[in-house]
Design a protein around this nucleic acid. Sequence first.
DNA 1: ACCATTTAAGCTTCGCTAAAGGTTGGGGCG
DNA 2: CGCCCCAACCTTTAGCGAAGCTTAAATGGT
Lengths: 225, 225
Amino acid sequence: MRILIVEDEIHLAEAVTQILKKHNYSVDAVHDGSTGLDYALSGIYDLLLLDIMMPEMDGISVLRKLRTKGVATPVIFLTAKGEITDMVTGLDYGADDYIAKPFSTEELLARMRAVLRRKGEVLPDDALKLGDLELNTTNLRLSVGGKEMKLNLKESELLELLMTRKSAATSKEQIIEKLWGFDSEAEHNNVEVYISFLRKKLTFLGSTVRISTIRNVGYVLEVNG
Amino acid sequence: MRILIVEDEIHLAEAVTQILKKHNYSVDAVHDGSTGLDYALSGIYDLLLLDIMMPEMDGISVLRKLRTKGVATPVIFLTAKGEITDMVTGLDYGADDYIAKPFSTEELLARMRAVLRRKGEVLPDDALKLGDLELNTTNLRLSVGGKEMKLNLKESELLELLMTRKSAATSKEQIIEKLWGFDSEAEHNNVEVYISFLRKKLTFLGSTVRISTIRNVGYVLEVNG
DNA sequence: ACCATTTAAGCTTCGCTAAAGGTTGGGGCG
DNA sequence: CGCCCCAACCTTTAGCGAAGCTTAAATGGT
């Protein structure tokens, strides 16, 4: 189950990310509306948590753009107290629920479960596929044809990130943010090490997918051998 | 199967708790509406037993708040004689059944089974199967081929949770929520201890199913040896 | 007193990091 | 144009420490 949180208060976003990961959701966090829109447009998410008040592009605009572009991913708005009118407008624009900040972990989880249940999202197994690769992010197994092997958490998160970004290059900074957290002091070399581990495993499995390097930019998956 | 009972008559609440525990339900009991609401919002319960007449916040208000917050847990109202009108209102608000006090153990159990079956839950007397494992959650017996042994309650609940989640990993947090309740202070080590107990029993029975650890993520059952 | 459960403690395992040395590629300069 | 050099990148590995495992003793309810 893949969740996107769009929230400009970085610490709140980080806290929610941690909580959801503890409950085995796959989580991406971004901190402004237009980036959030880009990510959400990929259509890979099962649920969006959208802050309403944000600089640049507010949550309601993000939602409106998404819906006009035909993306129907369920949305829960995060609202500060006193934004009730915003909230009402939000529900008008097709949000599925809202939560007033501050909220408890339990309330967040309950509402997410409720929305997901209402939407009847029973994904048989959320496996990511690209080329001959199949990554099951619920049990960290990667398979090519019949062959299968286990990944560890960071390998899995890295591959997941690359697979969901599709043909767009992913920078080392983005990778560090996702794997180590936004305020981490991880070095570029850490990323290189895990890229190396992954390449070794892709080769071992005989996949036709390769991780190609774009100097000074980042990494991209190439589907064809 | 985790049940929450919200009932201000402490002795009745206690009695029901005992009865349900005897029948292998996990039970939490609280004695006023607003506490009940807090607990129920966690979304971890499979069924709520809600007294209607309570000081502070009555059962109907609790139910209404729950539903507006998107929690869809099935509810059975407990009503004293002469609260029939309340009862009708309760069903309007989305309760699944009601029981008039005083009630018999058998009536309570029967109505609970009925509601849970209607909601499509796996009933306690269904035998769970996975690979060569067969777990009867009613009498806490686990068998492989002809061999059979008794589990204790927590072992059974843990195995049940793992078996129902199939190939998706289950985190320690999720296990704690299910076995100890969301407000518990159980440590990760508690989970590890029971995982260890279970592994020993699986080995003893000679099952081909193994509990595999996914570091930093959780546990998963592996069907093949 | 018995049994389920919890706590505690010592032990094992393995993911992560840092570091070091090798490889690649492109810009600059002769 | 071709060579050199440097920065970016790759790969491997050793050691540390957190995560997990196991056993045994303490606790507590019936």
